[in-house]
């Protein structure tokens, strides 16, 4: 009941609707500054960095990362002052504005333990 009231309050003042149920909290991780454009771009980082930047390991966790730190690292990848194997390609392909937007987006993502899907025996 509280959830419903809160929802209509947000809608009525024109705020972006927060998903307030548990499933959405855990998996949509919606932030205020998110646009579909940034959602899509940020999600493509997920192949290496995990959903919403919650890496399962082997790559940095971006969820909750300090935004100015994110920007500094990406700019360093971009100008070559931080050496990398692949990140310089992504940093150079993005605009500075996109780097800033991604920094804000990831800073606002909740840091959670990423889920690893369990393996199965091939049944075929």
């Amino acid at each position: 009941m509280i959830k419903k009231t809160h929802k209509s309050l947000l809608v009525s003042v024109g705020f972006f609707v927060f998903s307030l149920n548990a499933y959405a909290d855990a998996y949509s991780n919606k932030s205020i500054a998110t646009t579909p454009h940034i959602q899509t771009l940020a999600a493509s980082c997920g192949a290496c960095h995990g959903s919403q930047g919650n890496s399962v390991g082997g790559s940095s966790v971006l969820a909750g990362l300090d935004a100015s730190h994110f920007v500094l690292q990406m700019m360093a990848f971009r100008n070559g002052s931080r050496s990398a194997t692949v990140m310089q390609r992504h940093a150079k392909g993005l605009t500075v504005e996109e780097i800033n937007d991604l920094a804000i987006y990831f800073a606002q993502q909740k840091r959670v333990t990423a889920l690893i899907p369990p393996n199965q025996r091939l049944a075929e």
């Binding site: 997920g46 192949a47 290496c48 960095h49 959903s51 399962v56 990423a114 889920l115 690893i116 899907p117």
Partner: peptide, 15 residues
Amino acid sequence: YAQAWAKNIWSDVLT
């Protein structure tokens, strides 16, 4: 890094 790619993309696609 390739292993990390695989584990993270499976996490994203399948959970």
